[in-house]
Design a protein around this nucleic acid. Structure first.
Lengths: 222, 222, 222, 222
DNA sequence: CATGAATGAGTCTTCATTCAT
DNA sequence: GATGAATGAAGACTCATTCAT
């Protein structure tokens, strides 16, 4: 969407202990406020108050409302991708089924670790520079998945790019549905299993006949 | 999200020709404005002006801004579900593969028929009563899919509910990625094929041993 | 001074009777507020309230505070220059002494006609686009004086530009002093006489020996 | 203008070397900031930063923003009057023509010595306690001129008060015009000559028949 | 003495909504 | 029914000033 965007970078890097905790408090408070009153009624003053600070202090660290929301979104998504990345590095060279399972579970775990944030930030992703942030981190996740899939012991893909893009984006919808339905525990488990199946089944379809004893591709040494 | 919601129902049903066209113009204008300036800078005055009407007239048909946005979102999503429903009734009793193919294509076609609207309304879905509307129409789509799958000639599912929920929600993420990337044509085609595969593969995994007259499916091994 | 300047043009041309009076009220109110609390504590809300309108209404006619102040300043100065221009056209072809007398009196009369405005706008001239406005209207006054002096029956100048610039700007200081001192009536009269003398004496010094029967220069035909 | 005024006096007299230089730096920095961003966007923090100090330090020497600006203005104007005073004491007892010439040149020289300050402080003079300061120092200049004129070898005035007031105030307008036009050098010289002429011509008109030993002045006709 | 983070009152400005014409 | 001027509550953001370190 063709909207112009002003500065979104933090105004000052929090180096001191107090500053850091203040900033953290603002992050947390923003999510709470977002969750409680929604994006439309989210105000910088409310966020600051909830964080136990004054608006002025908030503006000491964030140049404007958009930047604050962007930062909160980015931090959340970064946490999620990092969790996924971490999980994926552990299954390099494993069979596709393992990778599929790990990926889905890591993603869901990360998202469900902070249900409030996941729900609250959904609206934020749709506005402002949200799309850009989501896009960027999605891509990062896609890359991570790409790399691991390339090392799958029992398979070879000729279109890793598209495969990983589909996978990385396909989970958000179902997750959203889960969150919207009140994060029913039973449903969560069932959904988790279904997604694993879906991902696994999908990957299998794009698997090229692999050599019986496949060597790791990326890291192989002649 | 626990936000209170005021009235969202249209103030009056447009019965006269002029009214209908005015309302239509407002719908269209709203989407344009949404697309051009984003949800944050969307104003009722702007929408009305773009529609060639006055704010007052707009308020003749919509009790408030939220209701307008809700109506626009609802109309768009309704169009999409209806297209999907229509397509699905045509494949009742067909094999799973046909249903999968039809479903994915109907959904993508419907969404890509009005890319502008699809993009513009993304943000709207995250706010206001957006979640409720999305939820309701998602459910309607799920139901439609459910019913058709139940008639699949070559399969039987024991957990149709979950299966259809996953399918109905899993496409939105990839679609969103497509829209965000500029709706590249080649990518659109590729994505479409991948999604068909994913849906088909996923469905097959949850297929129960079907009645005798079932034909072997293409990729099965004897 | 190198400051950037945003839009200063009125937002909407007041065509209706009500609008016109509202705008007039805002002009008057602005001057009052300016006079009473000074530029620093001048707020758009205060100006609107004093005008018997709401801030919103004010912003319907002026895009921002700067534009409002600029408009008020411009209107005042325009009134003054126009008065001077009008007086000067009446003395075309008259002797220098008459022109000098007319010029000084027209200027002082115009300024003293609305002492409040003259005092209130002094600060405004020093900020924002004030300099530009003052410069532009000063130049207009200079031009008017230039043209009349060129027709003086008993004189000829070789450096009209500089002469008129000096005259047009030399009066503001003494006037300011008068206003600051409470516009003492006796002082006003005395000052008026002194300024006439000063202008006359100055002009005489730059007068070239003129032909006995001087023909109008500008309008003369060979 | 009837505005109330809080304390404007410096909080403490800088006695130490460091303090003095800090204060000097603040003065200079204030003028720079004023020149660069204008009075409206002048902030104490900016001034302090530019001076290489912290806001806190600034507030150590100036009780508030107004006092700072007032001090800066006062210092500048004081420098100017002192220069004029110094020049004038050197021409006591000289002919009017010499006094006129000396006065104008001393004033212009003093003002043009620091063009930046002259321009930057123009806006300040219109606000705050600016009027009071300008008035006070104008009066001091007037007094100085008064005293010298009273000693003029070749003249006697019966209304020295008004004459000196006019002269002291009449130069500011033309000077302002010069500054606004970019301080063109050629124009500066021309203006200087014109102002000398104006002052001289004006003074001559108010000269009373002087004592016997007065020599005829150059332009007088027998 | 210096520092600069924190404060929050005060501004500007927008925009949903109403209602007289 | 249509209009769009008027309203004013609400929110983003700034900045003078303080005070703990």
């Amino acid at each position: 969407m063709p909207h112009p965007k002003p500065t979104l970078k933090p105004r000052k890097t929090p180096v001191q202990a107090r500053s850091a905790s203040t900033v953290d408090a603002i992050y947390a408070a923003s999510i709470q406020v977002l969750h409680e009153v929604g994006l439309e009624r989210f105000t910088t003053t409310r966020a600051a108050e909830r964080a136990g600070a004054s608006v002025g202090t908030l503006y000491q660290y964030f140049p404007n409302k958009s930047a604050l929301l962007a930062a909160v979104l980015e931090r959340h998504l970064t946490t999620v991708v990092e969790a996924v990345e971490a999980a994926l590095v552990g299954v390099r060279g494993q069979p596709v089924a393992v990778i599929a399972n790990t990926f889905v579970n890591a993603y869901l775990d990360a998202k469900l670790r902070d249900v409030t944030a996941s729900m609250a930030l959904y609206a934020v992703a749709g506005e402002d520079g949200g799309a850009e942030i989501v896009g960027r981190l999605t891509q990062r996740g896609q890359l991570a998945l790409c790399e691991v899939l390339a090392t799958a012991r029992d398979a070879q893909f000729d279109n890793l790019r598209m495969v990983s893009l589909v996978l990385v984006t396909a989970l958000s919808g179902p997750l959203q549905a889960l969150l919207a339905s009140g994060s029913n525990l039973a449903m969560a488990d069932s959904l988790r299993r279904h997604l694993v199946v879906m991902v696994d089944a999908y990957l299998l379809r794009f698997t090229l006949p692999a050599p019986a004893f496949k060597k790791p591709r990326k890291l192989s040494k002649p």
